[in-house]
């Protein structure tokens, strides 16, 4: 049983890597270029598909684009040059890393705005809550002093 488990875990570690090496059909002499290629196809989006990066997509267009990126990486073009080439053709849609510009302000800054609004309400809620507990304490004190007063008065009457 123990052996079986060990084999299972070894397979778990090895299998994804072999699967990956099957997919990658692009041959590089330079590992740095290969790393750049892998990063690019992981960050770029397939224009034909709605939510798939180039690396995961097997559509005809993605294969063509990967071929082009491979040629350009091999030819020594920079990441920037390749991005400009693709954005000139497919627009910002191609990149999963949208640029900061007026139409994407909501996307980039929206979360911080919501965080601020949430923080504001949390602060208000907390401070009103604190006020409530203070009021409660005051009430209790008042009630206690009244009780004491009554007890005293009752005692006074008894002695009379």
């Amino acid at each position: 049983m123990k052996k079986l488990l060990v084999t299972f875990f070894i397979l778990l570690v090895i299998l994804p890597q072999t699967a990956f090496s099957v997919i990658s059909v692009y041959q590089f002499d330079d590992p740095a270029k290969e790393a750049r290629f892998n990063q690019l196809v992981n960050e770029l989006r397939c224009p034909k598909c709605q939510n798939n990066n180039l690396a995961d997509s097997n559509s005809e267009l993605s294969i063509d684009l990967k071929d082009i990126i491979y040629e350009k990486v091999q030819a020594g073009e920079s990441d920037e040059q390749i991005l400009v080439y693709l954005k000139d053709r497919y627009g910002d849609f191609i990149s999963y890393n949208p640029p900061v510009k007026p139409s994407t302000w909501l996307l980039w800054y929206g979360p911080f705005v919501f965080l601020l609004i949430g923080g504001f309400f949390l602060y208000r809620f907390q401070s009103s809550h604190r006020q409530d507990t203070q009021d409660q304490q005051n009430d209790e004190q008042q009630a206690n002093s009244m009780l004491e007063q009554w007890a005293k008065e009752a005692k006074d009457q008894e002695t009379k």
Binding site: P47, K48, E60, L61, D64, L65, I68, R89, Y90, G91
Partner: peptide, 13 residues
């Protein structure tokens, strides 16, 4: 046939 003009035109389908 190789689709390169299509890519230059931004054709995606």
């Amino acid at each position: 046939n190789n689709g390169r003009l299509g890519i230059d035109l931004g054709v995606y389908g």
